[in-house]
Amino acid sequence: MRASRFDATVLTLGFAFLYIPIVILVIYSFNASRLVTVWGGFSLNWYRTMWSNQGLMDAAWVTARVGVISATLGTVLGTLAALALVRFSRFPGRMLFSGMIYAPLVMPEVITGLSMLLLFVALNIDRGFWTVIIAHTTFTMCYVAIVVQSRLLTFDRSLEEAALDLGCPPVKTFFKITLPLIMPAVIAGWMLAFTLSLDDLVIASFNTGPGATTLPIKIYSQVRLGVTPEINAICTILIGLVTIGVIIASIGTKRAEMRRIRDEHVAARGTT
């Protein structure tokens, strides 16, 4: 098969392109030498420097808090928005609403960041920790809405009707039936929102204030001054965290899949 050899080559080159820079970055975080091109032996030196860099550590702590709070708010709002999109076929301004869900996904960050900043100034709100959270909540909720929406579209409505039919009022039905069943999508949405918040430089730069310097802002200001292995070290840790998160998530999916297959076997055997 010539086609499959072509495919294999394309994929190998493509994934090499995607991963080699990251791998290099990780390797050089363990480089004893300060120069990128010189391998001075294995060292954890840069991790120590990083650890004692108070500014960097403070920024990491701010970023973690911003990430958790805005991802949580974004998940709540995004889940509601997804419900509104899927379950309400008609309400005034539905077009505008779905437009506002999709637009932030592609809107250049400089526009989103600047416009939100001007809102805060207009409302006379001091910029800082909470303005970054509001900004992040606003754009992450749209991603959550898309993720949860795709789950809701395949949701069997008769499950909810069955609960109503058995005497369970609508709000209780949502918490007892709908929410537990869409939970995997909600969690995925939260994780996506958290990483997006962790990752954001531009929107945070516009909306931050004194004492609310996030990690990307810190990294950016240092990167502008040149490549330092210290940045490689913190990047490696971030990559490591994300990789661990993804591995845990995929193990979870795999387990659920195995359980499903086992259940099907049980069901096939299970005669009276």
Partner: peptide
């Protein structure tokens, strides 16, 4: 369900464009 995200987006996404 509709109003909460709607108002949020109007306030923090649409209104800034007018400003």
């Amino acid at each position: 369900v509709v109003a909460v995200p709607y108002v949020w987006l109007l306030l923090f996404f649409a209104a800034p464009f007018l400003i």
